[in-house]
Amino acid sequence: MDMATKIPGALVAVLVGVAGAILLFWVLNKLVEMLPSALETRLKPYAFLLPAIAVIGTLLIYPAITTIYASLLNDDSTVFVGLKNYVRLFGSDTFLSALINNLMWIVIVPATVVVIGLLVAVLTDRMSPTKEKVAKSVIFLPMAISLVGASTIWRFVYAYMPDKNHQIGLINGILVALGGEPQAWLQITTLRFNTILLMVAYIWTQAGFAMVLLSAAIKSVPEDTIEAGRIDGASEVAVFFRIVVPQAWPTVVTVFITVLIGVMKVFDIVYAMTNGNFDTDVIGNAFFNAMYFSGDRGAASAIVVILMIAIVPIMVYQVRQFRAQEQSR
């Protein structure tokens, strides 16, 4: 299909979608209005919630329940095996290694993203408007690249050839030009260095996102509070840590948790760069391989359930944090 047919097609789709939604709510509304008025007022909110609940139910809750059930079945979901899949996973070195890697991603990536985002936000805040725009655009740019695209770029950065004349990798190219020996970067497992190299690629894609939100938060810190601090003789560092950061804190937490949830589900970068080889596997990639390479639905479901259980506390924390913010307003 060419663009000329795609654009009208997309417009029609949008129109039909919106009109359909309006029609649906209108019909539901009419139906409720036909009821006695006491019942009408009580049921009306539910009538409007119904479509949303139906969608979440079929696309989220129902699959979640079947996944939990499938994690208790064998590889083609025909025989009940109890907790065997979980026992097998926690007895496997490769899965435990993936858990350790996920833990590393969780500890390192969100904090680094927030720190870099905050740093860039503060520094660009002190530039002239034009320079600030250019600097921010450049740092935001990787956000526009898909994670697989970013992986391809970073694979070229880390690429390795044994021959000195044929380095196509950026780092090895520089290293050889300076007289060094090329290194197979993604194979360096000492202190899981290769996992950290994968994180660099991910941080590169996420720093822009953090910067934009944190920059907005810093700019909305009331100028008079900062001035009051300066008049009271606070140093720039003190102004930043005691006045700016506390007022931008809700945004910092939001960015941190958003990145944290993204990191827990990390898959694309690992799949496209190492496919979990050399001890770089993570839960997301382990799931994909169990499901689509090994065809083991039981193990794949069990991996996802473990991931789900791990994410729930963070979601709960985020919702609480959100409520607390709403109340303080």
């Binding site: 390795y160 044994p162 197979a184 993604l186 194979q187 080889n277 050399f278």
Partner: peptide, 11 residues
């Protein structure tokens, strides 16, 4: 092996 067999997985 040129570059060493250890590194073959990166070639």
């Amino acid at each position: 092996v040129f570059g060493g067999a250890k590194n073959a997985a990166s070639v």
